[in-house]
Design a protein around this nucleic acid. Structure first.
Length: 670
RNA sequence: GGUGAUGUAGCUCAGGUGGUUAGAGCGAAGGAUUCAUAAUCCUUAGGUCGGUGGUUCAAGUCCACCCAUCACCA
């Protein structure tokens, strides 16, 4: 298919250096690693890099909590992460760190280029300030009550309970995590990147990069909304790189993180002959660059990143591949139910090859989430890998060892059947190339079925009893073993350690993709040893048990899952009788009515999704029940300052709650 | 709330541009077999394709609305 050798640089997203690798991370690393191994087997130059994502506030907070320097924390965590990933046969060509000389060099170089080109400007913004500590507070240094769901003790940028995003300013009772004091709002000068100027260039790139439909539709959505300039600076103290020419301004972690791909690559280039950084990252070369990421960070990788690269004179990525999230047993991973499984816990109980195969069997090029169904995992691995695949070798190798002193026959029993297996190389390669791993696995397993049928058909165990046919047994088993070997070559990107064991069985050292088409004849093989053993359900049960947390964290998680609330929590909701003074349709909104409410002297504007059920004119003068202390919420059509209570499934079937005669606007509902 | 994605047999998933009785693997049931890590082979059963409308001679496939799940909202 590809006659010429390609030069490829690829990356996995950088694991944030503040926690352990878990099953969700592994989807990405296994997906990328399979692709890297595949490209290498095809004879291409493929350099696979990654790095520890070392900067930013969460790492700074964690280091404070542990009373160590951020550097020490990052070094320790990154070492553990790399160890776990390598145990899963993820083979980076370089795993570096964003807290490195090379990264600082590149970040400063890019920033300077952007500045000279006029893509950077400064603007004063209002930010939380801790008076007693005498410093500005990044969003994550402010905690308070979520304005949407009223969960207490949430970060200043997003609520971990309900997922709302906001600014520290929106928090109810904001508190500095440093001093527990109430922050003030003060002005600070920030650096901005003119993303808004890059729309045309980005649209061009989007077409060139041949991004997946899932990504382009998301991008269209963002273009539609209009690109906003990007705040790329943070005030001291911050764990990151200081912006040149300033005393107390640092680059935001999301600016230096993707540059970390380049830094890791640069670090490798500087100690590798024949690997030239400029050939890969300056425009005008015939090289390819790919980023594998999760769907949560598409925004950074398809807008900021190509814009920053383009604006600073670098080449843009050839493409970006985004995968979905992992669910376990159909649900989000959860610490309390034992489905938040760390890489380490898996390794203590199960073989990494099994997970690699299972993920491969489910992965495609789309952003759809994939599910790790543990029962399915056991069944699938045992059936496909042990029952079908490895079994082919297991049922043939014995005859060769015992009857023919380990020597393969000089010819195949059925060359046509083998040719069919060899011919599958192209379609399987195409599936790998397109990241259609599930299709590749299905193709291979269909061939494995065929191999088993072939053996069933020849019945070497019957032939061997007939002296006249004894020699033919060698041909049949040689055929079976070669069919197996060909399949293992196809699976080598997914199952590198099984492939290595298979090579040992056949006394081979190197496999290229083309090796699959050339049968091994007349040579000696080693004695067969089980390549993989069955997964037992209790191994999985033990892993889940070890992952289940009974500590405070899980208790908190459980409480969040629990719908029951206390009387105090209920009392926080300020329900009032309100009179609808005015009701009107909203231009451009199909479902909304804009209501002007009288809450007893106070007037509020509320948007209610009741247009299908009520005529605006019928509502005026009606008494309803409203939530008076709901945090104001910005909507496309204005700010909604509360909520009117109604029941029903929605659409035309929605019914407003009203108060009996005698109630006055402003009365508290108890 | 907005936007996007997903919803097909018990489970996990395939099903270009709409076209005869909707497919696979696993699991289940029955049978065969014993070379193999109770692996393998054959046969069978199983789905009103999330719901409701619509377009069409014809819809899992197009449109609208609804329900559920997930993500993003910089």
């Amino acid at each position: 298919m590809t006659a010429t050798s390609r030069k490829i640089m690829m990356s996995s997203a950088l694991p944030y250096a503040n926690g352990d690798i878990h099953m969700g991370h592994l989807v990405e690393y296994i997906q990328s690693d399979i692709w890297a191994r595949f490209q290498k087997m095809r004879g291409h130059t493929c350099t696979y890099v990654c790095a520890a994502d070392a900067h930013g506030t969460p790492i700074m907070i964690k280091a404070r909590e542990e009373n160590v320097t951020p550097e020490a924390l990052v070094t320790r965590v990154a070492a553990q992460q790399l160890e776990d990933l390598e145990a899963f046969d993820v083979a980076f060509d370089n795993f570096y760190t964003t807290h490195s000389e090379e990264n600082e060099e590149l970040v400063c170089r890019m920033f300077e280029a952007l500045r000279v080109a006029g893509h950077i400007y400064t603007k004063t913004i209002e930010q939380a300030f801790d008076v007693s500590e005498n410093m500005f507070l990044p969003d994550r240094f402010v905690r308070g009550t979520c304005p949407r769901c009223k969960s207490e003790d949430q970060y200043g940028d997003a609520c971990e309970v309900c997922g709302a995003t906001y600014t520290p300013n929106d928090l109810i009772d904001p508190v500095s995590v440093l001093s527990n004091s109430k922050p003030e709002w003060r002005e600070s000068e920030h650096y901005f990147f003119r993303l808004s100027k890059f729309e045309i260039r980005l649209r061009e790139w989007m077409r060139e990069a041949d991004l997946h439909q899932n990504i382009t539709s998301k991008l269209e959505e963002w273009f539609e909304a209009g690109l906003q300039d990007w705040d790329i600076s943070r005030d001291a103290p911050y764990f990151g790189f200081r912006i040149p020419g300033t005393e107390d301004k640092y680059f935001y972690v999301w600016l230096d993180a993707p540059v970390g791909y380049l830094a890791s690559f640069l670090n490798l280039c500087r100690r590798t002959k024949d690997l030239d950084f400029d050939e890969y990252w300056m425009p005008g070369h015939d090289t390819e660059a790919y980023h594998f990421i999760g769907k949560d960070i598409v925004y950074f990788h398809t807008l900021f990143w190509p814009a920053v690269l383009d604006g600073s004179g670098f080449r843009t990525p050839t493409s970006v591949f985004a995968h979905g999230f992992l669910t376990v047993n159909g649900k989000k991973m959860s610490k309390s139910s034992g489905t938040f499984i760390k890489a380490r816990t898996y390794l203590d109980n199960l073989d990494p090859s099994c997970l690699r195969y299972y993920y491969a069997a489910k992965l495609g090029p789309s952003m759809d989430d994939i599910d790790l169904n543990l029962d399915d995992f056991v069944a699938r691995v045992n059936s496909d890998l042990v029952g079908k695949l490895v079994n082919i070798a297991s049922r043939c190798a014995g005859f060769i060892s015992k009857r023919f002193s380990g020597k393969l026959a000089g010819e195949l029993d059925d060359p046509d059947a083998f040719a069919k297996f060899a011919a599958a190389a192209e379609v399987i390669a195409e599936h790998y190339e397109n990241r259609e791993y599930s299709k590749a696995m299905r193709t291979v397993m269909a061939l494995a079925d065929e191999a088993n049928r072939y053996i069933e058909d020849r019945k070497p165990w019957v032939m061997v009893k007939d002296d006249a046919q004894a020699d033919a047994v060698q041909d049949v088993c040689t055929q079976g073993l070669n069919l197996f070997r060909t399949l293992m070559i196809y699976l080598a990107p997914v199952l590198p350690s099984l492939a290595a064991k298979t090579q040992a069985l056949f006394r081979e050292s190197e496999w290229a993709w083309e090796s699959a088409a050339a049968p091994l004849l007349g040579s000696e093989i080693n004695r067969f040893k089980p390549l993989l053993t069955r997964v037992e359900a209790d191994q999985v049960a033990r892993m889940v048990e070890q992952s289940r947390q009974s500590d405070e964290e899980a208790a908190v998680a459980d409480e969040a899952d629990n719908n029951r609330i206390s009387i105090d929590e209920f009392a926080k909701v300020d329900l009032r009788v309100a009179r609808i003074d005015k009701a009107e349709a909203v231009d451009g909104a199909d479902k909304l009515l804009r209501l002007t409410l009288d809450l007893g002297g106070e007037t509020r504007t509320v948007f209610a999704g009741i247009k299908a059920a009520y005529d605006a004119s019928d509502l005026e003068g009606r008494l309803v029940v409203a939530v008076a202390n709901l945090a104001p919420r910005k909507m496309r059509f204005g700010t909604s300052e509360g909520m009117v209570l109604a029941a029903g499934p929605g659409g035309e079937d929605i019914f407003l709650l009203s108060a009996d005669a005698g109630a006055e606007p402003g009365m508290r509902v108890k």
